[in-house]
Design a protein around this nucleic acid. Structure first.
Lengths: 219, 219
DNA sequence: AATTAAATTTAGACAAAGCTAAATAATAAA
DNA sequence: TTTATTATTTAGCTTTGTCTAAATTTAATT
């Protein structure tokens, strides 16, 4: 099936938002893709036509098996390019997302399989996310929660989910990166902030807004 | 300046067709881009607006200095990706054109400069064409003529200019590739064919049509 | 159950990039 | 220098992906 770049981006976003079998809402998708709900409705009709999603008016969106397969291909391409940029071209992990976002739309099985071989068939990308293989099989993402929902005290950063350049640059400035160990000092409900502490550094207060995008697992 | 993929393709094609100061015609550009003259006229107006070309009704198209700079950036990206695909991912030279055609539209100076470093800053691509450096400077293409216009007898293949997949596959089947040495046995005017001979192989007849796209230099 | 609020969809419009068919300009031929 | 031919442009339409504003449906709250 020949998809446009826009269609691929929708499929990828639906995959990202679809937890389990819950349908993705029009609004959530519009927010994720930085577009308007009306545009999402339009595209939903097209993707349904192409049998990539199940969609009934007002009922939200879920990927079909075919749609899921497509999404996994795109995710594979994205994550392999991220590996390439970091491992071979010495980019830092917070720089690669936007570039991979473009490179992922070059559709060639042969290219991507050779790229994978060239990189030694990696199974996780620089953000700690697993890479689907050529058949769409992928390691289960390690149990991770957003930092604002973590209950354990001592944690390690495993990924950053909403990969806007601004956020990544912010984290970089604070010295927070993949593998960073930190502990939660306090969670202030009254102003939605979290105080964290990293070794050898003074403690640091961040907003829940930011914390939501930092994925961690217990150490 | 932010160009669309279509605009980049036009600029690149104009660069390719513009020999010296001669203006490129609407028809030639339409043929090169596999589109219609009316579409070229439309795009010419946009590119003039963006100051990438000089264009007056019925007078043909030439690149402005700014347009030439843009074209050289695109050519640089294209040729570096071709090197990457051949040198690092083991593609053969006739496979890479279409992939590079897509990769070239990922616009990032940093990416392309790092890619160049990673490849050892090559100065010619797998087709034998020179690669512009980061400032748009490029070695003069070596003196080469299309095979149908060669006067010397003993020749070496330096490039293939019209890089359609069909043509490249045809040449591959015949064993003609970059660096192949051959001699012209005879040029038959009456049916526009050329008989050539490669070492250790029986002689071979090809059409002028094909020969036009094989660039050679005297050996 | 009725009303309000929120989410979603429809209707109509726009920009980009292309097309066809018709009109016009430039060039070549008689 | 007319006429015929070829090249180019214009006019109007199509598709893709987006938008805003209005209408409608679903969900939440009285």
């Amino acid at each position: 099936m020949n998809l446009t770049v826009a269609e691929e981006n929708y499929v990828k976003a639906i995959y990202k938002l679809q937890e389990g079998d819950q349908a993705v809402t029009t609004n959530a998708l519009a927010y994720e893709l930085d577009t308007k709900p009306a545009s999402v409705t339009d595209m939903a009709k097209k993707l349904k036509e192409k049998k990539l999603i199940d969609y009934e008016k007002y009922q939200g969106i879920t990927l079909t098996p075919e749609g899921r397969k497509t999404a996994l291909q795109i995710v594979r391409r994205h994550r392999l390019w991220e590996c390439f940029l970091v491992d071979k071209l010495s980019f830092s992990w917070e720089e690669v997302h936007e570039l991979a976002e473009e490179l992922e739309h070059v559709r060639s099985e042969k290219l991507i399989n050779r790229l994978s071989d060239f990189l030694g068939n990696p199974v996780i990308d620089p953000h700690g996310d697993p890479i689907p293989d050529a058949h769409g099989r992928m390691a289960k993402p390690r149990p991770q929660t957003p930092l604002d929902q973590a209950n354990a005290k001592r944690l390690v950063v495993t990924a950053v989910s909403d990969q806007s350049t601004a956020l990544l640059a912010f984290l970089n400035a604070k010295g927070i990166k993949l593998g960073t160990q930190l502990e939660i000092v306090a969670h202030y409900e009254f102003d939605n902030s979290i105080e964290i502490k990293m070794k050898h550094l003074p403690s640091l207060t961040i907003s829940e807004q930011v914390a939501k995008n930092i994925m961690v697992r217990p150490l």
